[in-house]
Design a protein around this nucleic acid. Structure first.
Lengths: 259, 259
DNA sequence: TATCGAGTTTCCGTATTATGGATAATAACT
DNA sequence: AGTTATTATCCATAATACGGAAACTCGATA
């Protein structure tokens, strides 16, 4: 698991050193499932102990890191709050359009963004149906195995796609999931051609999903509608695709205008 | 809305200045719904423009802040990731105990923490039932209107409770919700006496919930089980309360030991 | 229970690093 | 086009974070 890839701490030219280091520590703790001890952290990031200790103290005072009774460090509730707000703000623009989609199509709609090498669902409007698709907000999933993920990947360079697949791996949650880079690239080609992605029971058996990337968004973003294959069929697609396209364009426009 | 309370940026003795400032900026952006412009931020936190600009640049490079086409700043996807991990790590300790609760009681179980003046659900184990309680992980709710919230409030000072109620407000989602500080304090008294909180259709009609705070946890934490009033009745309570109590104690113990 | 050692925390002189006034560039407004 | 408000860049200054060394704490071992 712990690959050599640990990028230590990236020092960009005009950046504030201590801030970059602080987030490096957060990343490090995030990667060490549960808690991380001071020396454990010191082994990952390449910094002297006193420096790490001082930074961590600052973060503890800020509430973004908490120190356990055994002196280990873990991410704190302050981050939950910020992350939650960040997610809702990302999703806020899309929310009304998702509502429209749900109202017109009767199936759940989602927005997701790419973070690192995975997709994170940032908002969802659930359908009123009894049996409905449910995706936890904040949930992370592999890009190649989701509609939104593939839609986003289709907008990236081939090189970047390969890098993502390499670092995140390509597990196959179902027998329909894409398992090789070759298959993925072929699929991305089809997506670029037709303008939207289909998740054909690749994430979960019995679930079909139509997804589309938001063009020119500040952060990579995609929307989708999904539901059981019995309801989400060809005639559903005929209705859904134009609506998705329209929604994506309007969300994009609203994002450009800044507000 | 914009009260004088803006604490600017707290400079604690042994803290790293730039890191504290950086998180001050994040807080500021979080409070300004949507985007915040450079000068808008400068008005809130009391810092010269170049300093803010440099810090923001650093944060943008780190991916925790994104800059919109209109040059406004908003929280970025990096925070979604960190917040998500922070939440799941907080919940990770509780997860196995939640599973036990669900297995024994057949209803959904939750963990929530307090962040600022609201509760945030950090994890949930859903029951297998068709009709089940569903709470989105990461969702925030008012303290006074939820079982977990009231359980946490019952462990705080009266003064702090009043402060929270004042800042967050006391909306009443249902006709059963608590609407005044007086009623809330009386209810908290009852909770302290009996040792657990009941949410009696206060959050959503038809839903009853039993909640208990985790004693001596590093961050305020509470667990709960909830379901439709038809199933979650007195006999359910008789079975649930001892189990809740036991689970809370064991989670507490595990948290103390650090791991 | 005494001794040891890994891991953690505090101290403080140093120079590296962030700082912010001044200025230039850019966008918004009239 | 002229003007103002806002944002971005420079760079000399000293304040700030830095990290070597040493004290301390805790847990393990004899």
């Amino acid at each position: 698991m712990s690959s050599k890839d640990t990028p230590a701490i990236r020092q960009s030219k005009g950046g504030v050193q201590s801030v970059e280091r602080a987030f490096g520590l957060l990343e490090c703790i995030a990667n060490s499932a549960g808690s991380a001890t001071l020396s454990h952290i010191a082994a990952d990031v390449n910094l002297p102990l006193p420096t790490i200790h001082r930074l961590l103290n600052t973060l503890v005072n800020l509430g973004v890191v908490r120190q356990l009774p055994d002196r280990g460090y873990a991410l704190g509730p302050g981050l939950v709050r910020l992350g939650d707000i960040a997610g809702s703000q990302l999703g806020a623009v899309a929310r009304p359009y998702l509502r429209e989609l749900v109202a017109e199509l009767g199936e759940s709609a989602n927005v997701a963004t790419m973070d690192g090498d995975m997709v994170v669902y940032v908002d969802q409007v659930a359908s009123e149906r009894q049996m409905r698709m449910f995706t936890e907000v904040g949930r992370r999933a592999h890009m190649h195995a989701t509609g939104v993920g593939k839609a986003i990947l289709a907008g990236l360079e081939s090189e970047q796609v390969r890098h993502i697949a390499a670092t995140a791996g390509m597990p196959t949650p179902t027998e329909y999931s894409i398992g090789t880079i070759e298959d993925l690239e072929a699929e991305l080609g089809r997506i670029r051609e037709r303008g939207y992605a289909i998740d054909e029971q690749e994430q979960e058996l019995g679930v079909r999903c139509f997804a589309m990337a938001i063009p020119d968004s500040p952060a990579p973003l995609a929307i989708s509608v999904s539901g059981p294959i019995s309801r989400v069929d060809q005639s559903f697609a005929d209705r859904a695709v134009p609506l998705l396209k329209d929604a994506a364009a309007r969300i994009s426009a609203e994002m450009q205008s800044g507000r």
